[in-house]
Structure formats: C-alpha cells, structure tokens
Simulated scan of single mutants.
Amino acid sequence: MHMAAQHPTAAVLLCEVVMEILSWVPAKPVTRLKLVCKSWNSIISHPHFVKLHLHRSPKNAIVLSTLTPPFPNKEEKQSLVLSSVESFIQNPSSTVDAQENRHSLHLQDRVSGSCNGLVCVARILYHPNKDICDIWFRLLNPLGGFISENSPCLRVSMHTASGFGYDESSDSYKVVTVSRDSSGTVTAQVYSFGGSSWKRANSFPAFPFSVEDNGHFIGGTLNWLGLRNPHGAHYDWAAVTLDMLMIVSFDLKSDTHKQILLPKGIDEIPDKEPTLGVWGNSLYLLHNYKNTHFIAWQMKEFGDENSWTQLLKISFHHLGVERLLPEFIFENGNIFILRGRHCFELVFYDRRDNSVKRINILANNSYFIAFDYVESLVQPC
C-alpha cells in the first residue's frame, strides 16, 4: 500500500510548529539552518518569520565602532565589533581586540546608528580647502553579510550630524542628516532606503553639539540635544545659557519635528555639554553638576515631558574621578559607562548595587563608539 498523502491542514500545522521553534534560535545558527531543506529555507526567508524572529531576539547586545591608530609597520584600521554587553563590561580591551565578530570598515566610514540588526554607515569624502563634503549611506547586517546599495550622494556642510531609524508605518528604514552652514542656518534632509532621492525637511530649530552626536532612535523618532538658533559654525560653551538648550525630536513617519522640554529639575547650565541616551523604551539625559556630581534623568514614558525622573545623582568622589564625560547606557538603564580623567579610562557604574569599576584601556583601543544592537535576519530592499 502506498502511504497516504499528508493532509494539507497537517502540513500547515507542521510548518507553524517549525516556525515557532526556529524563531527562538539565535540569528547566526538559524541562517545556517536554511541549508537543511527547501521548506526550512522558505520559512526562514519569509518576511513574517524575519519579523517574528526579530521580536524574540535578545536585546542585550551592542555593536562597537572602533578605530585602531597606526603603529610601526601597521596601518590604521576601523572595524565593527559585535559583542554582548556582559563581555564588554567584563573586559572592554579584549572585546575590542577580538577578531571574532569583527567586520572591517573603510577609514572614511562613520557609523550613524543601529536599528533592528542593521547598521547604517556613512562614507564621507571631504573637499580640500572647502567647508563641504560628499556623503553616501549604506546599510549592513553584520551577521547575515547583507550590504545595501548606496544612497544617492548628498553634498553637505562639514558640520553635519546624522541619525538612522525605522518607520513602521511604511516599513522603511530612513537616515536623516542635520547640517549647519557658516551662517548658522540648519537644514535637515531625509532618505528612505530603496528610494531614489533625498527629501528636504522643514527648517530645523537647533544643531547637535557635535557631528559625532548621532540621532537617538526611539518610538519612531530620532532625537538630538543641541543649541537653539546657533550663530555661525562654532560656539563657546561658557557663553551658552539654559534657554539655548533643547531636545529636537524628528518624526520619521511625518518628516516633521517637535521640541521635547528638558527636565524641570535642571535649573542651571551644566558645566559641560550634556548627552542623550536611549535604552529600551526610555530616553535619558546625562550631565555633570557643578563639576562634582553625575546626574542621569530618565523619561519613563517617551513623549511625556512630565515623566522625566531623576534616576541617579552620584558624586565624583564615589566614582573615584575628578572629571568625567557621560558615554553610554546599558542593561535597561542600570549600567552607565563614563569616560574618566583621560581618554583611556572607562568608569562603569551599576546603580543596582552602587558598584564602580574602572578600567584603563590600551592606547590602541582608545577610540570607540557603542550602539544598542540586536541580532536579526533583516535584509531590506
């Protein structure tokens, strides 16, 4: 007797069971499981599975953009390094040095952000003796090896910051540039990957403190902390007043911006430039206070200015530093990484047990930028 053909309903149920099981497998091994059979390849490649897998992927990873200075008989190199938060905290130097999960970048590249397992990279070509540059953006999925086509070339001022995020309403990934010319005029432009051109947004009311300040993605928006109506290309922080500070939130769905008010508890200008941070669904504002304390504010409900809460205030004495610069936030806003007295010293503060860990990283690891990262199978058009 011939075996009866499998009932269509049973086949569908089997497919759903396989999808459910595979959706919990980490991204790297699940890509290899495509080779098991055609049906598994079809399941893993399906957009529904990609989104389900992304939703279930662990959120405790980071991607580091590192720059290794030149040494005798060696060239300067730039890389992307994937790491768990735990590994990085335990040994930052070894993590940055590790060859595993390292991906080379061109020296003219700059990472603009990370979202849903994709890393947005800008290639920048500066014009000699001019205050302008040409810039292209592309997307990488370091785990899957995916590389998108370049965006159209954009000619902008050298004073240009950028940010990268996801617009769920159109299922599209967008990059935004914020440029300031010599007269102080600020212009924002938007590109949706897969499109053919850049779109100019409405006038922008502030400019980030530094071109290295990437827009912080949260709730479908990119957020920058900057100066209102800057005059010219440079500013003197000693002359900045509290009413000049503002958070600008750019909505990727509508391509419009709005202002987010600073916490009401900030009643004087910090002695150094504050920084923004994002972890999970919360926005953070980090700053020094009277050059004696480090303060962190958390907006518990993004968009609700009344939800600003002072998360911590800790003395430099407890941290064992004389000065510091806020850097990154990890582990759901529990671990703060600060730059200490010199650029080779990292200070880890864990507010759960009030512990402090200081690490001197080697000179060849002195420069890196960390981004929140999640493993994914995402490969947009």
Rank of each mutant, 00 (worst) to 15 (best):
L80K: 11
V81D: 01
V81S: 06
L82H: 04
S83P: 06
S83E: 06
E86C: 07
E86K: 14
S87E: 03
F88E: 11
Q90A: 03
P92F: 00
P92Q: 00
S93E: 04
S93A: 10
S94L: 02
T95C: 11
T95A: 00
D97R: 03
A98E: 04
E100H: 13
N101R: 13
N101Q: 08
N101S: 04
R102Y: 03
H103G: 00
H103S: 10
S104V: 12
S104C: 05
L105V: 06
H106Q: 15
L107G: 03
D109S: 12
S112I: 03
S112A: 15
S112W: 03
G113I: 13
G113R: 11
S114E: 14
N116V: 15
N116M: 14
G117F: 09
G117C: 10
L118I: 04
C120D: 03
C120P: 00
V121Y: 10
V121P: 11
A122Y: 10
I124L: 07
I124K: 09
Y126A: 07
Y126K: 13
H127F: 15
P128Y: 05
P128W: 00
P128M: 02
N129V: 08
N129D: 04
I132F: 08
C133Q: 14
F137K: 09
F137Q: 06
R138E: 05
L140I: 06
L140A: 06
N141A: 08
G144V: 04
G145E: 06
G145T: 10
G145L: 06
F146S: 15
I147D: 07
N150F: 07
S151T: 09
S151K: 04
S151W: 01
P152K: 00
C153T: 15
L154I: 01
R155I: 14
S157I: 00
M158K: 13
H159L: 14
H159F: 14
A161N: 09
A161M: 09
A161C: 10
A161S: 15
G163A: 11
F164S: 08
G165L: 14
G165A: 12
G165M: 08
